[in-house]
Amino acid sequence: MTVEIKQASADQLPLIRQEILDIHVEVRHHDFGLNTEFNSRARFDERLTAYSARPGWSAVMGYDDGEPVGFCFGVPLGPDTAWWSSMTTPLPEGYTVEDGTRTVALNEIVVRKPWRGSGVAWQLHEAWLAHRHEQRVTLLVNPEAGNGSVQAVYEAWGYSRIGEQQPFPDSPVYASMIRPVRQA
Rank of each mutant, 00 (worst) to 15 (best):
T89N: 01
L139R: 00
G33I: 12
E108Q: 05
V69F: 02
S160G: 13
T36K: 13
V141I: 05
G94Q: 14
W115K: 01
L13E: 07
I162K: 02
H30K: 13
G146H: 00
T138D: 02
M87I: 14
M1V: 09
P167L: 04
P90S: 04
F44I: 03
P14H: 10
L91P: 02
A42H: 07
G62L: 12
R17A: 08
P167S: 03
W157K: 08
K6D: 02
C72Q: 01
V25I: 08
Y174F: 09
V141M: 00
T88G: 02
V104Y: 09
G66K: 06
E19N: 11
F168M: 05
A184R: 03
H133W: 10
V110Y: 02
P143A: 02
E126L: 03
S171R: 03
R17K: 08
H125G: 09
G94M: 15
I16T: 09
T2I: 14
R161N: 10
C72G: 01
A42F: 14
V173C: 09
G148R: 00
R112D: 02
N39T: 12
P68N: 09
A59E: 04
T89E: 00
Q135K: 08
Q135R: 06
G33H: 07
V181C: 08
K113C: 11
R112G: 03
R41K: 09
S40L: 15
E93C: 03
S86W: 03
W122E: 13
G94H: 13
R132Q: 14
D65K: 12
R179K: 08
F38Q: 00
E67R: 10
T101L: 14
E164T: 01
H133F: 10
V181P: 04
M87S: 15
V3D: 00
A42D: 15
W84I: 08
H29F: 13
F32L: 15
V141W: 00
Q151L: 07
H131P: 11
I162E: 00
N107D: 12
D45A: 15
T49W: 07
P68Y: 09
L129R: 04
H125E: 08
N35G: 09
